[in-house]
Design a protein around this nucleic acid. Structure first.
Length: 412
RNA sequence: GCGUCGAUGGCGGAGUGGUCAAUCGCAACAGACUGUAAAUCUGUCGCCCUACGGGCUACGGAGGUUCGAAUCCUCCUCGGCGCA
C-alpha cells in the first residue's frame, strides 16, 4: 500500500487536469499550490490563519535548512515535522538539492533561476549576491562542492562542514516525516553548457535511484511517506525529455520538475519534461509561482506548485491584485483608502485599506508582512481553486484568458 | 555681562586650506525578487542643462587672508554649557 495516492477527476485535451492527492495527513485538491515554509514556518503567518484565512492545504519545508537548524533529530524527537510545527495537513519536504545550486553552482555567477532573462536579472549586475557573508566562504570560493557521490557544503549559518548524499538526504527526510519528499537532485545553473548539463543529469539519475532504493528499504517510512523524483535537463529540451524518460521508468510516487529554464521557454520545457512521465502520478513544478506561470504549468499538466514568491514579495510590500502586482511602498498609496484588492476578496482585502498596509510597511510594523503574506497567499491559492474549477467545468482556457487580460491590464 | 564650545544638504552627523556638491546613517523616491543564506537587496537623493558630460548656488550672516576656504582671521546673529 502506497502512502500517496493520486486520483484524477478530469483531464482536458491540452493536458490540464484536476484531481486529488491523498496522504496520511489528509488530501489536497490539485492543481495545488504548496505554501513554502522553508524552516518549518510560512514566514509571518500562523498555521491557523493559513488554514482558515488562506485556505492552504499543503505546505513545503526544506531539508537543508531544517537539518542545519534545529537538526532533524530535534524534529524527530518532537514527533516529526507535523507535530513540531503544529500542522495537521499534508506536508512536503524538498531535498536540499536546490540549495546545492543556490549555494554552489548558482553562486558563481550570482544567478537566479531566470538569469539573463530580461526583467529578471540585468546584465552586468554584481557577480555575487550582496547578502553573502565572506566569513563562511569555503576555500573553493563557494559554499557547496559537488562530486559523483554527493555534495559537501559549508553551513551558511556557522561555516561548519557537512555532507549530503542521496542516502543521507532521504534519511533526514525520513526523520522529518513529511508526507511527500523529493529525491536528492542536482539543480544546475541556467548557464550550464550541454556537456555539463548531461553529466549533471546522469548524476541526478543515479542519485534518484539511490534515493528511491534508500526509501524502499525503509519499510516503516514507506508506509508513511511518498517520494518524488526530480526531472532535470536545464534549458535543453532533449535532455529534459531524456531525464523524464529515465525517471519516469523508476517507481516514484510522483515527479518534480526542477532546474533552470527561461521564462520564455517554460512551455517548451514543460512539454519535453512532462510527456514521458507516467500520467497517473502527480507532477510538481518546483519553485514556480507567478500567476502567468501557474496557468502555463497547469495547461501542460502540472498538478502541484510551490513558490516563495507570494510570501517574499509580501514581505517587501508587493501585493498581488486582480489588476496586477502593486508595490504598496509607492507614494501613491499613502492616502489610498480603497480596500487592498476588492476584486479578489479574502480576509485582508475585505478589511484593510492600501493606505493602512502602506503605513504598516513604512512604520516597519510586523503586521504589514503578515497581512500582505496572508493576502498574497490567499490570492494565489484562490487562483488555483478557480483554475481547478475551470478545469472541472471545461473552461480552463477561457478562464485563463479572462484572468490574464485583467491581470495585465494595468502597469504596476 | 564674561568665558567657552558650537552652527554642514529633509533629519542626525563626518570633514577642519585644494582631489568637496561634500564620508556615513536615517528619511524620502524608484527598482528587483519564481524548489527562501531575503522582515532582503539595488539605484537615486542641492538646482539647472543638449545630463558616461557641463553650468550654477552652497557648509548660520557679512567682510577679509589666500592662486584656492565648509576648513584660517574679524565682526554680527543664534544655540549649548560654565561663572556671575
Amino acid at each position: 500500500m502506497r502512502a500517496i495516492r493520486f486520483s484524477i477527476e478530469k483531464t482536458l485535451e491540452g493536458g490540464a487536469r484536476a484531481g486529488v492527492v491523498s496522504t496520511p495527513h489528509g488530501s489536497f485538491a490539485t492543481p495545488a499550490f504548496c505554501t513554502v515554509g522553508t524552516k518549518g514556518t510560512v514566514k509571518a503567518v500562523t498555521p491557523k490563519d493559513l488554514k482558515e484565512l488562506v485556505g492552504a492545504e499543503v505546505a513545503l519545508a526544506n531539508t537543508y535548512h531544517l537539518f542545519l537548524q534545529p537538526g532533524e533529530d530535534v524534529v524527530k524527537e518532537a514527533g516529526g515535522l507535523h507535530s513540531f510545527m503544529n500542522c495537521q495537513g499534508p506536508l512536503v519536504t524538498d531535498s536540499g538539492g536546490f540549495q546545492v545550486f543556490s549555494l554552489g553552482a548558482g553562486f558563481e555567477n550570482g544567478s537566479n533561476k531566470f538569469v539573463g532573462i530580461p526583467g529578471f536579472k540585468q546584465e552586468g549586475e554584481s557577480v555575487m549576491p550582496s547578502f553573502f557573508d565572506e566569513s563562511v566562504l569555503s576555500q573553493h570560493g563557494k559554499l557547496a562542492i559537488i562530486d559523483d557521490e554527493g555534495v559537501s557544503f559549508t553551513s551558511h549559518l556557522d561555516g561548519s562542514l557537512h555532507r549530503f548524499t542521496p542516502e543521507r538526504s532521504v534519511e533526514i527526510q525520513h526523520a522529518l516525516g513529511a508526507d511527500i519528499f523529493f529525491a536528492f537532485d542536482e539543480c544546475t545553473s541556467p548557464t550550464a553548457d550541454y556537456a555539463y548539463q548531461r553529466e549533471a543529469g546522469e548524476r541526478t539519475h543515479r542519485w534518484a535511484e539511490r534515493s528511491l532504493a534508500t526509501h524502499q528499504n525503509n519499510l516503516e517510512a514507506r508506509k508513511k511517506q511518498g517520494i518524488f523524483g526530480v526531472v532535470q535537463g536545464g534549458r535543453y529540451p532533449d535532455l529534459r525529455q531524456w531525464s523524464a524518460e529515465v525517471l519516469g521508468a523508476m517507481d516514484f510516487d510522483g515527479y518534480g520538475i526542477g532546474g533552470s529554464f527561461s521564462k520564455a521557454d517554460l512551455g517548451e520545457a514543460l512539454r519535453s519534461a512532462i510527456n514521458p512521465l507516467p500520467s497517473d502520478k502527480p507532477r510538481h513544478l518546483l519553485g514556480i509561482g507567478e500567476p502567468e506561470d501557474l496557468f502555463e504549468g497547469v495547461a501542460h499538466g502540472i498538478d502541484m506548485f510551490d513558490c516563495v514568491q507570494p510570501t517574499r514579495l509580501a514581505r517587501s510590500a508587493t501585493i498581488y491584485t486582480a489588476r496586477g502586482k502593486m508595490n504598496l511602498l509607492r507614494e501613491e498609496y499613502i492616502r489610498d483608502f480603497s480596500l487592498v484588492d476588492e476584486e479578489t476578496g479574502g480576509y485582508v482585502s475585505e478589511h484593510f485599506s492600501k493606505a493602512y498596509l502602506a503605513h504598516l510597511f513604512r512604520a516597519k510594523e510586523m503586521l504589514g508582512a503578515t497581512l500582505a503574506s496572508l493576502h498574497n497567499l490567499y490570492f494565489i491559492i484562490s487562483l488555483m481553486k478557480n483554475i481547478r474549477q475551470s478545469i472541472l467545468e471545461d473552461r480552463f482556457e477561457a478562464f485563463r484568458e479572462e484572468f490574464l487580460a485583467r491581470y495585465t491590464s494595468r502597469k504596476v
